[in-house]
Nucleic acid binder design. Structure first.
Length: 284
DNA sequence: CACCACCCCTGGACGC
DNA sequence: TGCGTCCAGGGGTGGT
């Protein structure tokens, strides 16, 4: 579900609400979504949350004893802070949890953080420390999409024969873009999704980096794209979906002034891809 | 090595 | 109302 802007919004809301607080207990409802050690200690019980970090679409909750839990939301995952758990609710003494809640952390101050994921494409990965996460799970990821340099993107794109859409979706090349934001980025840069990645010029590549930053930062400012079920850790929806110019606009008129094209869709790199045949070109 | 097809799961929208 | 089909923002893996 979530791409870089949505994951960053979750990170910020978690940071605001639970950073500095002590994790009191953890309840694991579905153990099979956890990879690595799944003891209470590995899940940060007894540790204070010192930071919530992000690389691409992945989050890492870091504990005061060095422990680290990497969270990947997949397509349908949510990390949500629940409030008002200071008092006992219901006869069971447990809060009403939404379906598909797999892990629940109790946090100091009557709070709880729940990980919910109906499709279970997401999951949790525990590490002894941040270094182990970076040397392990995050080591193959490319630079974060908000930090990649024009030179690095150019090198990455030049080295593959794939269409540019497939290359930009590859998290090992650049981390954080998904199907929505790649289509929006290519629309913004007027590049056709089937253009061979290696055909890009250094100039076009640095233009892509500039547009990528503007697009992603703007989306973060608007709280991300809420197409169906995306909400941040405070259950807030975003509004970036109202700004999409290619994604989800199949058959509609291109919004560019002077362009008479209609948005077309087809499968590229196994994903539904939307572009304007009028202003997105393979060459120049 | 690089790439593609396929698989993993559930829920919502739609057609009959 | 109910059932079948298709589709969805994620990634990993095995085969060519």
């Amino acid at each position: 579900m979530p791409e870089l802007p949505e994951v960053e919004c979750v990170r910020r809301s978690l940071q605001r609400l639970v950073a500095g607080r002590l994790i009191g207990a953890v309840r694991v409802i579905r153990p099979d979504i956890i990879r690595g050690e799944s003891t209470p200690g590995a899940l940060l019980t007894g540790q204070r949350i010192t930071a919530v970090r992000r690389h691409g679409k992945q989050l890492a909750v870091v504990g005061s004893e060095g422990g680290c839990v990497c969270v990947h939301l997949g397509m349908s995952g949510q990390l949500c802070v629940m409030q008002g758990l200071g008092t006992v609710k219901g006869s069971s003494g447990l809060p009403d949890l939404p379906p598909h809640t797999h892990v629940l952390w109790r946090v100091e101050g009557g709070l709880a953080v729940r990980f919910t994921d109906p499709r279970r494409f997401g999951g949790l990965w525990t590490f002894g420390d941040v270094d182990a996460l970076e040397a392990g799970r995050w080591s193959a990821l490319g630079p974060d999409a908000l930090a990649i340099t024009p030179r690095r993107l150019y090198q990455g794109l030049s080295a593959t024969r794939r269409p540019i859409k497939a290359a930009l979706l590859d998290q090992n090349l650049v981390a954080g873009l998904g199907n929505i934001y790649v289509d929006e980025l290519l629309f913004s840069a007027r590049l056709h999704p089937l253009m061979p990645a290696a055909a890009i010029t250094a100039r076009q590549s640095s233009g892509l980096v500039t547009r990528m930053r503007t697009l992603l930062r703007g989306a973060i400012d608007r709280g991300g794209s809420s197409l169906r079920d995306y909400i941040d850790a405070e259950s807030r929806r975003g509004s970036q979906q109202t700004r999409h110019r290619a994604y989800g606009r199949s058959g509609k008129r291109c919004v560019r002034r002077g362009c008479s094209g209609r948005i077309e869709t087809d499968q590229v790199a196994g994903r539904t891809t939307a572009w304007c045949p009028g202003c997105q070109r393979i060459g120049a």
